[in-house]
Amino acid sequence: MYNSPQYIFNQENLEGHAQDLSAIYDQMGKYYEGVERANISLLDEVFHKNWFMRDTDTPKEATLNVENKQKFIDRVRNHGPYLNYAKHRKFANTGLANGNLAFVRINKKSATSFFLFKLDGKWILMDKLWATMESQSADQNRSLDFFSVDRLVTEYFEAVKNSDSKTLEAILHSNWDKKTINADNHFKITDKNQFLQNLPVDKGNIPHTKLMSMDLYHGKLAIVRVDFTDESSTSFFVCFKLNGQWTIAGERSSINKTASNSY
């Protein structure tokens, strides 16, 4: 006899999950309406102050383009409205972690992905990532790209475990950052220099049991989800191919611990 329902069919959990999805879709709808109609107030509402857009829409895709909230809003204000911006876009995938971190993929011709964090009980857009259509050569190199990204993320874990700042310096992009939220709604942003200067000394804190999955977009962008099953925590790694070389451009994490022992 069960003392309480199991998580997966606990009605309270199911209702909470449905409410989160509804709120996330509502925020995404406001984003697309804000761009299509150049409604700046909607964009200001749904974007976190530290929102950024990243893409490789640069000459020969050799560099990473990074645009902050204000620059994006100014561009929409000056050049909008963007008629039919939302046309034919569809929700392709939505993933949740610990009820406070979400990943959303939108499909059209290009692939666009978003991260949202639940801060003070409200879902808010934290990042936008996108990649243009793949070329025939990119499609032919798909298996190699999967292998390269898998090796890159594995190398990251090994470097963190060994406090190997030299390797991390090489595989993390200069604009890399880590955004983390934990069980008590504590939100933190760490830039590359801060991360390298504060690598963990107690290597026993690095979790070992993990599940990995990867989404690859047009041979240019990869989102790797890593679930640490022994700690109920999740990290998403953002990887871009720049000038033919894969690099880690960011990490988004949800940690099922409190602020006193999460960092």
Results as ranks from 00 to 15, higher is better:
Y2P: 15
Y2R: 12
S4Q: 14
N10W: 08
Q11I: 13
Q11M: 15
N13E: 11
L14K: 12
E15Q: 14
A18D: 14
L21N: 10
A23E: 15
I24D: 01
D26W: 03
D26C: 05
Q27N: 12
Q27D: 09
K30P: 03
K30F: 14
Y31F: 15
E36C: 09
E36R: 11
E45M: 10
K49I: 07
K49P: 01
M53E: 12
R54H: 10
T56Y: 04
T56P: 00
D57E: 14
N65P: 01
N68R: 04
Q70L: 09
Q70S: 12
K71C: 00
R75P: 00
V76D: 07
N78E: 13
P81D: 08
P81G: 08
N84M: 06
N84D: 13
H88M: 10
H88W: 08
H88C: 02
H88G: 02
R89D: 04
K90P: 02
A92N: 09
N93Y: 12
T94K: 05
A97V: 00
N100V: 07
A102T: 04
V104L: 12
V104S: 09
N107I: 07
K109D: 15
S110E: 13
K118F: 05
L119N: 08
L119T: 11
L119G: 00
D120S: 13
W123Y: 11
I124M: 13
L125A: 07
D127H: 08
S135M: 05
S135N: 03
S148M: 03
V149E: 04
V149C: 06
R151I: 03
R151D: 13
R151V: 06
L152T: 05
Y156Q: 01
Y156N: 12
F157K: 02
E158S: 13
A159E: 02
A159G: 01
V160D: 10
N162P: 02
T167H: 06
T167I: 13
L168N: 09
E169F: 04
A170T: 13
L172W: 01
L172D: 00
S174I: 11
D177W: 07
K179F: 07
I181T: 04
H186K: 08
T190V: 15
D191H: 05
Q194Y: 04
L196N: 08
Q197G: 15
L199F: 06
P200Q: 11
P200I: 09
P200C: 11
V201Y: 06
D202H: 10
K210C: 07
M212V: 13
L216S: 01
Y217T: 01
H218C: 03
H218N: 15
L221D: 00
I223W: 01
V224L: 03
D227G: 00
D227N: 14
T229Q: 12
S233Y: 09
T234N: 12
K241D: 01
N243C: 08
W246I: 01
W246S: 00
A249Y: 01
A249R: 04
G250C: 04
E251Y: 02
S254G: 10
K257R: 15
T258L: 12
T258K: 11
A259Q: 13
S262D: 07
